[in-house]
Design a protein around this nucleic acid. Structure first.
Length: 883
DNA sequence: ATCCAGACGTA
DNA sequence: CGTACGTCTGGATG
């Protein structure tokens, strides 16, 4: 940091520094889950943050080359011609780096035909003329010529990108033995291999410096070249043209026409939300706080406007509170503070008047009528509060809006997680929050009624911003589903501890035995659960061939082990696979067992109460956590024993399971209008048999199980944007055969391909996909210049309307079933939703009526051009009911 | 304590 | 080089 009052202009050669970072940081450690490399971006930003912190520039810009072509290549086509092709892994990172810099409000400067260093040169001359201290950051030695009393160069040292050497005129003199402006003369004599500029043979830095000192200037030297004796003298005389050319090319332009000057480059506040978004996408976690720290912002929603005047709530006793409510017109914001699943405080907000008070039995009695009434209410993250009210035997009525759900529907890929974020984004205001790091907080957090007030106002802004079709999804699908999910979570599902622990005991005996056998085979004990130790055993002790590479070594996953077993059979492999399987089951059992009676269970209910995260997916599906009941094993006979622990609860008669068969394929038939596929579903024939017959040109009864497997994989793969490569991998067939299979398939079901293509194109045009019911998902990456990003987005965009429509249909069915059960005064209740399956607990004597309701509402949830087929089963436990 | 990678369960 | 999720473990980090 300088003591002077002079402003500091920092100009960075983005390309050269990002390129150094690209080679300096191991790509294995910098790859996102969708395979986007980020090492250059990370390294560059990391260094930039350090620079900003250390140098505190008042003005800043990053210059980039536009392409390899420049005025220098026009003059000398061989310029930089020996450089190897820029790796595409690097090029792909540049647009993303630009996005990061834009979010950080740092100007990026480029100019066609001009190299970044020329921009540095021009700005450095302008800057020093206009009274700035200039800091240049570049990995290109040509920039040394720009150094003077006002201009300092930071140059990456050999040790690494994070180490920058500071060159002022003295440092240049020390390092190179000449004044900065003479450096290009040396470079011209010595040549620059990396730029493909040959110099004088046998002349290095030492000789060049000696000559220049002796003759005073390059011109003088060339003039009097005859005076130099020996071989080098001859060389110099032979290569005078090369030297002149080099000197011409390494002279940086100081008069590039730029749209901005130093004064326009004043450091601006960063767009905190944009930075959070792009860093989330790049999976930069540790970098985020460093950025905020460096620019002096906090990692909290920021805004420029002064804090709004928040009305002061009136602390109200039950009777007074109850009397106030009916006098209010229009919707009210509502916030229930909960702790341990119980209501502790309530706040209600109109536009200007706010009321709140502690929860008590008296308060519950006083407010019950209003809470249960159809009077309009707006909440943020209502489900938890609805559940807490259920425990007070209050059923919330009049739920008109949930800002958290609305925020998710607006941006399903980056849902705002808290009211504070929503208030920041949609109101541009800051929700008062107590600083938890301070013993005596400077600022008080918002009270419940104040949160309700912000919620109410955020809802207004969200309604304004939300497209009509999305609003329909919110009011017709999501808000009713929220209430159903609250009931399902509160109900929980009965799980037998005895069944689980018996099974777990058996598995423990087995895993111990398998481990002992495995250790005997290997000759030592180790941790079978450690991929790292396992690699030592497989590839060193047992000398098995190396498998697919991962970030940290070689893969030991099940598919790889199965391949190994085929090519290099070894008894250890089978033991390992069995051990893995049994261990996995034990883990699942253990986590289920420990979840019994938790999360809002009433004492000794022996039930598991999962939490459905309504905003948990980008497509519209639910997710289930704590524990996840949507991934309970089903594929193997043995694993289904876990399902048999899910039992019908006391006071109920049986479990009913109902699932949609091939709902995604049916949606694809509907959306594509493919006549063959529609016929398949209307024919009543087994889908894969029907498709197999068409694809292979045989009668349905002649479709072999191998054929059926192939078309089945193909059909399902279609929904995910499968490639011939992926299909060949899954079916373990040649790529050529997979390609042929795809061609045959599309020859028969061409409208499917047409639809998939058109749907991605449409998404590219709109910037988002849409389900049958109007749920949207934005896909900005469909037009990304980065191939990895773009192709990933294309597959996701292909899948989103299909998976999303299926999710919509299930939610609609769920809502209607729930409504019918209540309307019919039935005691039966829906317990679980597993994407295309429902589990219902049937009260005594209600089977027939409930089965009728479930079948009707599931089949009738959408009017497609193919029927929605529903399979129903019954049993004392989940496994039995699934048959 | 917290984060990440690898592995694996579901639709 | 097939979409959408959550959870567990070991191992490295602070």
């Amino acid at each position: 940091m300088t003591d002077s009052a002079k402003p500091t202009l920092m100009v960075v050669d983005g390309h050269s520094l990002a390129y150094r970072a690209f080679f300096a940081l191991p790509v294995e450690n910098f790859t996102t889950k969708d395979n986007q490399h980020t090492n250059a971006i990370y390294g560059f930003l990391s260094m930039l943050v350090n620079l900003i912190k250390a140098e505190r520039p008042t003005h800043m810009a990053i210059a980039f080359d536009t392409s390899r072509h420049s005025f220098r290549t026009d003059e000398y086509p061989e310029y930089k011609a020996t450089r190897s092709e820029t790796p595409s892994e690097f090029k792909g990172q540049i647009p993303l780096l630009h996005d990061c810099l834009a979010a950080m409000s740092i100007p990026v400067l480029t100019k066609e035909g001009i190299e970044a260093d020329d921009i540095l040169a021009t700005l450095s001359v302008q800057g020093s003329a206009q009274g700035y201290d200039v800091l240049l950051v570049s990995g290109d030695r040509d920039t040394i010529q720009l150094v003077n009393d006002e201009v300092t160069l930071l140059y990456p040292s050999v040790q690494g990108v994070s180490q920058l050497k500071r060159y002022d005129p003295v440092a240049v003199q020390e390092r190179y033995g000449v004044r900065p402006e003479q450096y290009p003369d040396i470079a011209a004599l010595v040549g620059e291999t990396s730029d493909n500029l040959p110099g004088v043979p046998k002349v290095g830095e030492k000789t060049a410096v000696k000559w220049l000192t002796q003759f005073g200037s390059l011109d003088e030297l060339l003039e009097r070249a005859e005076e130099i004796k020996g071989v080098v003298g001859g060389n110099l005389r032979e290569h005078m043209d090369d030297v002149r050319r080099n000197r011409k090319l390494n002279r940086l332009l100081i008069d590039v026409e730029l749209p901005v000057g130093p004064a326009d480059l004043a450091v601006a506040p960063i767009d905190a939300q944009a930075v959070r978004d792009i860093f989330a996408r790049l999976e930069f976690r540790t970098l985020l706080p460093r950025v905020f720290e460096a620019v002096g912002a906090t990692d909290e929603p920021v805004h420029d406007e002064p804090a709004v005047q928040v009305p002061v709530p009136v602390e109200s006793a039950p009777a007074e509170f109850a009397a106030w409510l009916p006098a209010q017109t229009g919707e009210l914001g509502l916030t229930l503070v909960t702790a341990g699943g119980r209501v502790t405080r309530i706040g209600v907000a109109g536009e200007t008047e706010l009321r709140e008070g502690d929860w008590s039995d008296e308060m519950a009695d006083a407010l019950r009528a209003w809470l249960e009434s159809d009077a309009g209410k707006v909440l943020n993250d209502a489900k938890k509060q609805v559940k807490a009210l259920l425990r007070e035997r209050i059923r919330l009525g009049g739920l008109r809006y949930d800002t958290l759900l609305a925020g998710w529907l607006m941006r399903p890929s980056f849902p705002d997680k808290t009211l504070a974020h929503l208030v920041d984004r949609y109101l541009g205001e800051k929700l008062p929050e107590a600083d938890p790091s301070q013993l005596v907080p400077e600022t008080d957090g918002a009270t419940p009624a104040q949160e309700a007030w912000f919620t109410l106002r955020a809802a207004v802004a969200l309604r304004e911003a939300m497209p009509e079709s999305v609003t329909a999804v919110l009011t017709d699908i999501e808000l009713p589903a929220l209430l159903v999910l609250a009931d399902m979570e509160a109900a929980g599902v009965a799980v037998s501890h005895d069944v689980l622990s018996t099974f777990s005991g058996e598995l423990l005996t087995r895993t111990d035995g398998l481990a002992a056998e495995a250790f005997a085979l290997v000759g030592r004990e180790f941790n079978l659960g450690s991929p790292k130790q396992l690699q030592e055993v497989l590839f060193e002790d047992l000398q098995l061939p190396k498998t697919r590479k991962t970030k940290t070594g070689y893969s030991t996953d099940a598919a790889v082990l199965a391949d190994l077993q085929e090519s290099h059979p070894h008894p250890f492999l089978a033991l390992l696979l069995q051990h893995r399987e049994a261990t996995k089951l034990r883990q699942i059992i253990e986590s289920l067992d420990s979840a019994i009676g938790k999360n809002g269970a009433i004492p000794d209910d022996h039930r598991i109460h999962t939490t459905y995260v309504q905003t948990g997916s980008q497509t519209g599906r639910l997710s289930s956590t704590d524990p996840n009941l949507q991934n309970i094993p089903v594929r193997t006979e043995e694993s289904r024993r876990i399902r048999s622990a899910f039992e019908v609860g006391e006071g109920y008669e049986t479990l009913l399971t109902a699932d949609y068969s091939q709902i995604e394929m049916r949606i694809m038939a509907h959306l594509s209008g493919d006549a063959g596929l529609i016929e398949a579903f209307n024919s009543g024939e087994d889908l894969h048999r029907f498709v197999g017959a068409r694809v292979f040109g045989v009668e349905p009864e002649e479709v072999t199980s191998a054929m059926r497997t192939k078309v089945k994989a193909m059909s399902y793969g279609l929904v995910y944007g499968l490639s011939a490569f992926g299909l060949s991998k899954q079916l373990r067939i040649e790529q050529a055969e997979a390609k042929k299979l795809m061609l045959e398939y599309f020859a028969r079901f061409g409208a499917v391909r047409d639809y998939l293509r058109a749907s991605v194109l449409q998404a590219k045009e709109d910037g988002y996909t849409e389900t049958i019911f109007g749920r949207r998902r934005p896909f900005p990456d469909l037009s990304s210049p980065n191939r990895v990003l773009r192709e990933n987005a294309e597959r996701a965009a292909l899948n989103a309307p299909i998976q999303g429509s299926a999710a919509d249909i299930m939610k609609i069915a769920l809502n209607r079933i729930h409504a019918d059960l209540r309307k019919g005064g039935l005691g039966s209740r829906v317990l679980l939703q597993i994407h295309d399956e429902l589990v219902v607990e049937i009260a005594p004597g209600e089977w027939d009526r409930v089965e009728q309701i479930v079948r009707t509402q599931m089949a009738g949830a959408a009017d497609l051009s193919v029927p929605l087929d529903v399979q129903v089963g019954a049993g004392r436990d989940w496994n039995e009911a699934a048959h």
